[in-house]
Design a protein around this nucleic acid. Structure first.
Lengths: 349, 349
DNA sequence: TTGTAAGCGTTATCAC
DNA sequence: GTGATAACGCTTACAA
């Protein structure tokens, strides 16, 4: 393929002039500029960005390291980063660790994958990126991020308790608060909660949101209304059996999957969701639209998490001297109204 | 960051020797090798792949252009490419066109996005990739791929009727054939079909698969059992109304979404899916597991499409002189057995 | 076994 | 306005 030298020769000027013209630098004569641009078009010249990046210190490229691109949250986060980069004229290179595929599904309980992570960070440095966004596929405290790096690092969908890196996650508590408030607004007071896995930070935060919503609405918190689940559909079913015995009129399932278990149970009992029992889920997974009736739920701000991390990172890159204290940024979730909530008139009376 | 020159100086050898050692080339003394490797570790040296790629003609990097990374099929395809690249020591750079986000949902009906596509191809060439895989997000004849490119191009999830490029898609006909056969094996003869959108190539192929399955099993093809749909859940519901009047015992819905409409309808009628009516879908979307009872369906071989395209491309790169006739490769789909099919004993008698 | 030096395609400095 | 030329960090003949 034609290079700058050939363009120069063909148009009878020096490569310096060609370079200046390509990069819109002043100082080239109108006549020459026109001639050079024509040869560029004629020879279908494409600048070699590799050479360009070798020469230039700041190549306006960031690295994105994803734990697993095939996990549902990741593409949207990458898309958010992508948009912000496009807007600010940055490129990105993607390194996908494929942790789910390569290791076992619960890879984050072991640390055998740490080496893989460090390798990818090194690779990114080798590729001369100006900063790195690490995209987790399971929100948790990340201990695998190398700390002796000279370039800025931001974590998306995961965080760092040591506050060495900034991170962007969604606001579990606010999401659960909204979900609960919507049920309360519809007139419900006895709201069962299907809790997620025992140790989950998400579940802990969501419970606090639930409790705060009750408190703000002057509703007594009844601990009996909390049923332990494990994020699985089956556990949602089992929790429903217990709620069925109580005088619960609404259920907040801490994810859409467990909400599915609620549907299963009440389907069997021939009770109608949205008429006999109200329910709201969390995550806004594809399934939530598919349940019958469709499930009101909380949408995760994945795209925004991506955008925000990109903004943080690019700010750090462009203002290297501004000392920033790493922080955990929480992005609010959004309530998605569908048909699984009904107005509980009787209770209100 | 340390570069090769500093390593050389620090270990008291020339840069050529360092380079040889890094790249595992023979001819370096054991003593020197050890010393150099130590300095590399000590200075935490990371080779600059930009410089390396500038120098080396073949940089073992391919480009992946995705129409939209957030569309459900894309991440798995990329994952398949990723795996094959890993295995064969290739890197990839990703260019995401974001067509759904940037243009309207039916972007492929217009051609206003062509410029965007061509730009991305040019960008890939600028990045000196050795080949490009174009990942569509909607299987169709692609007319947007520039044809005057010097590097090999393969299309994944889309094809090129002009047979200028090789492409990899899944086998609609075989998938539909399997789906229908499973219903026939379960004893069903009167099998309704909910057809996809009118002009869809997918739908046409799937109908042929259905018909072939009937023929191979000596079952008369009753055109009345074909109901036009449009891929939407609502159209599945409407088709069910008609089947309800006919003596249909099983339904092949051409996608999982329309199958959802069937569930809706029979739920209202208080007929039980998997007991009163058998159904099989297509796509194996996340929802198919969530329906109650879970939906038997046809899984798209997305990962394999990715792997296969990567194999094709890398073969073309490594054997540039081997003349290949571009072909449309079809990967078989897989039947996923769930609970929406029952054995129709009565019919069999 | 090791070192010298050319060159990959750019950009940037500085002289003309 | 334009042109030499050094430099970016590396690989690779080829020389020593």
């Amino acid at each position: 393929m034609a290079n700058i030298k050939e363009i120069a020769k063909e148009s009878g000027v020096s490569i310096a002039t060609v370079s200046n013209i390509i990069n819109g630098k002043p100082g080239a004569g109108e006549e020459t500029r026109k001639r050079v641009l024509e040869t560029i078009k004629k020879l279908d010249y494409r600048p070699n960005v590799i050479a360009k990046n070798l020469k230039q210190k700041n190549n306006r490229t960031i690295g994105i390291i994803t734990e697993d691109l095939t996990v549902f949250n990741t593409p949207d986060i990458v898309d958010g980063i992508n948009e912000y980069c496009d807007e600010h004229n940055y490129e990105f290179v993607l390194g996908n660790l494929r942790l789910y595929k390569k290791y076992d599904e619960k890879f984050y309980h072991s640390d055998k994958y740490y080496g893989r992570v460090v390798d990818e960070f090194k690779m990114m440095e080798s590729k001369q990126v100006e900063g790195i966004i690490y995209v987790g596929c399971h929100s948790r405290n990340l201990e695998c991020i190398p700390s002796n790096f000279s370039i800025p690092i931001v974590i998306a969908y995961g965080f760092d308790n040591d506050k060495e890196f900034s991170s962007v996650i969604f606001n579990d508590e606010q999401g659960a608060y909204e979900a609960t408030c919507k049920l309360i607004e519809a007139g419900h007071q006895n709201i069962g909660v299907i809790y997620g896995a025992q140790q989950s930070i998400h579940a802990q935060q969501r419970l606090i949101g639930y409790q705060r919503a009750l408190y703000d609405n002057k509703i007594l918190f009844n601990p009996q209304f909390i049923q332990q689940g494990d994020w699985s559909r089956k556990s949602g079913y089992e929790a429903s059996e217990i709620f069925f015995e109580q005088n619960v009129t609404a259920i907040f399932a801490m994810n859409d999957l467990m909400a599915g278990g609620v549907y299963d149970f009440f389907y069997e009992k021939e009770h109608k969701i949205g008429t006999d029992i109200a329910i709201v889920g969390f995550d806004n997974r594809e399934v939530s639209k598919a349940y019958n009736p469709s499930l009101s739920t909380i949408e995760l701000p994945l795209f925004e998490i991506g955008r925000q991390s990109a903004k943080l990172l690019i700010d750090m890159i462009t203002q290297p001297h501004k000392e920033v204290n790493p922080e955990i940024y929480k992005i609010d979730c959004k309530f998605i109204e569908r048909k699984s909530i009904y107005k509980n008139i009787i209770d209100k009376v």
